[in-house]
Design a binder for these strands. Sequence first.
RNA 1: GCCCGGGUGGCGAAACUGGUAGACGCACGGGACUUAAAAUCCCGAGGGCCGCAAGGCCCGUGCCGGUUCGAAUCCGGCCCCGGGCACCA
Length: 815
Amino acid sequence: MDESSQGAAYQPASFEPAWARRWAAENPFAGVNRGGRKYYVLEMLPYPSGALHMGHVRNYAIGDALARYCWMRGDEVLHPMGWDAFGLPAENAAIQNRTHPRTWTLRNIAHMKGQDQRFGFSYDWTREVATCLPEYYRWNQWLFLRFYERGLAYRKKGLVNWCPKCATVLANEQAEGGVCWRHEDTQVEQRELEQWYFRITAYAEELLRGLDTLPEWPERVRTMQRNWIGRSEGAEVEFALEGGGAPIKVFTTRIDTIYGASAILLAPEHPLAAELLDAGQREQARALRQRLGKLAPGEEPPKEGFFTGRYARNPFSGERLPVWVANFVLMGYGTGAVMAVPGHDVRDFDFCRKYELPIRVVVAPAEGAPERPEAALEGDGALVNSGPYTGMDNRQAMAAMTAKAEADGFGKGTVSYRLQDWGVSRQRFWGTPIPMIACPKCGMVPVPDEQLPVLLPENVELTGEGQSPLAADASFWRTTCPKCGGEARRETDTMDTFVDSSWYFYRYVSPQSEARPFEAEAIARWLPVDQYIGGIEHAILHLIYTRFFTKAMRDLGLCRLDEPITRLFTQGMITRHGAKMSKSRGNVVDPAELIERYGADATRMYVLFAAPPEKDFDWNDQGVEGIHRFLGRVWRLAGPAAGGREAQGGSDGTGDAALLRRAHQTLRRITRDFEGRWHFNTSIAALMELVNAWQAGDGELSAGARGEVSRMLLMMLAPFAPFLAHELWRRAGHTGEIGREPWPAFDAELAREDEIEIIVQVNGKLRARLKAAPETEAAELERAARAHERIAPLLAGATPRQVVVVPGRLVNFVL
RNA sequence: GCCCGGGUGGCGAAACUGGUAGACGCACGGGACUUAAAAUCCCGAGGGCCGCAAGGCCCGUGCCGGUUCGAAUCCGGCCCCGGGCACCA
């Protein structure tokens, strides 16, 4: 056979790079689309670590399939990409290479952007944002100042999480479980420092309630955020201190158990401890705290404490209670002081048993109150030994006792949150400088807007030693006070990089805006994000900060949104040999090598085919080959057919109807997958079935049918394998982008089967199959089933007790 | 400990609303083409039993039980794996 009519073999390297270059130069994925409804598809912006990894590829392959489908469906799609470009790795690289962190960062961005383009992801690159550029971070500073004016940014001294490896402070969210989020083997230390905070707690209630307005977020993420916010209702009760002084405020959710209190417990760092304790005791308190810091991550610390020598009075019973310091009482939650009720709280039970404090039962469970409880009774019941409240149901007692405390002025009902304010100061170089100036005369003075941005210095040498680089650079911090003009010192801390990512997708809508962070009309047009796609690891950190930013910006009048993201999709992880891919394990798969061997289409398509996108999957090196083979089949079948160049090779067309039926059935399945659960693995399987059927029946196809099926196949393939689809589309003589063509129209009539298989069961067991028209009625199906050569003998001489007929599906005889 | 997910062939998975379990693919076996190989194409394949064969029968979706004409799917109990949270008073 003649080589030219046969065509060359499928070699993605022969056409993918050319289209990638063309798309990069012409940016065809910007602009407007036939006036459809707006659809903002967003993938989490990556940290420019150097090269794309498979997690990125999966994230973007999902987002891009969706963005391309939505465009073809007729939506006005916004699909931007950018770079979360501040952060520690750039500093470490700078120390090693003796360069500016920007050099390393920008080089990585250039490389990764090239990879994105090589993959054919349909981003609108005119909207690209890199958070490390002054054009971006000046708006971090601007927003910080607006927050400051509103009291949403403030400075306070307190205990903070310090990661010795990062050599910086971390927010609570970044030090979960006492370990650094970036160094899971590193225990954070507690240090007392003065730091900047964002008042996220002002929105605790709204952040919690807002979760109920996000039905299209995964339940798992909403639950995690709910737990993180940790709302609990209870009461604050004051216990008068014997011998004078301010009363001790205690937070409890179980005021009903107050007659069972055996002691008052203070957190070791409670401010009262400093007043009440003598020097020796203060040393003891410090020791308690330090021992906590030395535990291995996850290790349960033993409960320890000591008696202060002072007593407080129970405002209900009048009882005298010893005041202790206890290591398990947290200063950061409630009031930092609790009442110990060992009969009804497991922790207090352990503590009081150890130190032989009295254990009493004041809420009797249904089976009666034990004299000496073996464990804390945390359930409900009727009160006992509780003065005038004895006999009352404990739930009612809570309300009555709270009312009493309020009436008598020694307490009130309150709500407590686990969520704490977001510490945003970082003692690092490569971040947004905090735009504040400390003046010896005027105090903290904000940098005036017209002086923004406060730029990071150019001439720095990062050594990784000593204090933070900005603090060491006098030319940076030496300045004058904007108020009095006297000598003053700039803030040398930079912002947490989670500030950058809290609003970046607002910037995408008007990235060139010079007067403000983003344009209100553009926000009104594009936000909220219709579909956000990313990893589950950001369920709490990023996704709670960005919700907070939206609410704060709304209250500043910058936008009108309550929530920034309508629908959230969390993709599964890709593992290899059962473990997370990492350089140290040596089990990484490099997307660049896959492109080299199989092309971008096969690589993207395989990660979608291997598993449903929300599930984890273990990488299989041979799996990509299957997709590559499939694309090769498409190339050989659809390539010649697309242009109708084989007109003379067409046959009588006896197979046309069957294959067209198949094509429309495939279209129905794929459309349904896009509109529903995004199980692209089954979409791709459907495409494979179509191609298999075509290959098997190719000899019975007319040239016209071939052309039509080929056209539909390429359209359906376009969201998954855009290069191949586009290449064959153009070879068929079309102009423009296949990705900008309308999605094919489904024809129910063509998709209709004229004969289906009905199964026949006897006692629920499959015994025969018969063919029938889909609309065949029950009586006729039963008649045909009874007459079937396999079934008739089984029914001979017996009358079925029941006959179940489900038209279109089955007949079941119950004997 | 508490709260979520999830257990289906050798492997990744499919089965959409309770109705043919294992689509599609990987790996594997056999064959065609080829001097040969690669590529490609065709065929086979959950396990067991009967049969020369066509074919037939039984078992099978983590385990035990239930509901139903019919259960991977619904209900109850248990086991295992993965993830999140964990002194939050």
